[in-house]
Design a binder for these strands. Structure first.
Lengths: 226, 226
DNA sequence: TCTGGTAATCGTCAATCGACGATTCAAGTC
DNA sequence: GACTTGAATCGTCGATTGACGATTACCAGA
């Protein structure tokens, strides 16, 4: 993952309109002072300040590389704390919780547990669930990646997909509709509103669409008991 | 994904010891001539050649950005063919097949279907499976990413993990051992050899370790019937 | 109030970049 | 053999970077 992070940092800085600000952002992420960074790089602290202030509009890639590596090295010397964040955190960015049940769970029980309200009364809820995935839909959408992960790993015929941060509930259903592998159940956690279209799509797909008003920590806790 | 690719390209170029070669690599990926690229950038072709030849040891990030954007723009104008490669291909790189069963499958049936030989006779195989994932272990290892995806999405207590391209079978078991979430069964498809350590680890974890001699297409076909 | 840690600003200068254009090669292909 | 097309090499030159050090400014504590 080290390489990944290095590349991301370098890429971000290189593409930034204000590389200085991006450098600063990362330096702050790593909780390193300009001085410490300067020491690690064996340059004067003013150099760092100049970069961050944007005095150089297009620093050379060697400079960028040196800065990135210095930050990562400093972090490693201090235990690699920051890097760890960007390992799991990034990959799992959009996934808040995930679990496979050791024994199948009835949808009706699942509903009771999360205090869910069925928005699609026509759809049968007599099936079983093998597991669930709780997804931060904002993050899933902004980092398209995550959506792709989900497409491949997280969506399966026998699990509940729980979306948090839902506005109208259209995008998740559209994504589901576009994909061959369907979840057995879709849950919106405290949606602002649930669009008609979302309900209609769920009915077409024959997937029960559930709304719950539990907040995330409570929801997670309840789910853990299953 | 566009942003992702941009960042990756910029990052790679920025971190490269020979940025010129990396620029060339990408230009060739995009199947663009130096001249076309130069035209897109509105500079003389010799400029590109100079960069690729390494005449500038540390090009400024603005230059890098311009080159990256030019390549992507050219690709987009031509239909975005190259970019598409870097979308799904990359994410799914290591996953050859994946499926959740609609109904549980007994391990013994699973074994019969794939003509599997149990290398761990002590371990019980009376459990059920919810699904399986077929993984190209070479790709999974070289692109560390994929291994991380798996950690989070693909590994679950009730599924079979099928590894292809196995040399000694140590790495997959070690990775499994290191991770809290365990598969219910591990299958090696035509391993060159199966190391003692791998078997021992499987026993410790109480995960049946299976060997199959089916080749990949046949294996997939059989699995599809489940 | 003084001090130490952190950061900003700026003048300066050698080194390097960014770009051009002229020239030379290497392969096709007409 | 003449003619494109793609690429390499290099001298040149103005513009910018990379780095320093001096100076200033802003806190938070002792």
């Amino acid at each position: 993952m080290r390489e990944q992070l290095r590349e991301k940092m370098a890429g971000e800085i290189a593409l930034s309109d204000e590389p200085g600000k991006t450098i600063r952002k990362w330096r702050e992420q790593f909780k390193v002072s300009q001085q410490d960074l300067a020491r690690q790089l064996d340059v004067s602290p003013s150099v760092i300040s100049d970069y961050e202030a944007g005095r150089r509009k297009s620093p050379g890639i060697v400079t960028v590389k040196r800065i990135v590596d210095a930050l990562i090295s400093l972090d490693e010397m201090a235990g690699g704390h920051v890097m760890k964040q960007y390992t799991l955190a990034n990959v799992a960015e959009a996934v808040i919780a995930i679990k496979e049940f050791s024994e199948d769970v009835l949808m009706t029980n699942f509903l009771k547990t999360i205090e869910g309200e069925n928005l699609t009364p026509q759809v049968q809820i007599d099936r079983h669930l093998h597991g669930y995935t709780v997804i931060d839909s904002i993050k899933a959408i902004t980092s398209l990646d995550s959506f792709d992960y989900l497409k491949i790993y997280g969506w399966s015929s026998q699990r509940a997909l729980i979306f948090t941060g839902v506005k109208f509930g259209r995008s998740p259903m559209i994504a589901i509709r576009a994909h061959p592998l369907k979840p057995a159940m879709v849950v919106y956690q405290r949606p602002e509103k649930v669009d008609e279209l979302a309900v209609k799509l769920a009915e077409i797909e024959n997937i029960p669409l559930i709304r719950t008003s539990l907040d995330i920590p409570v929801l997670i806790e309840r789910l853990n008991k299953l």
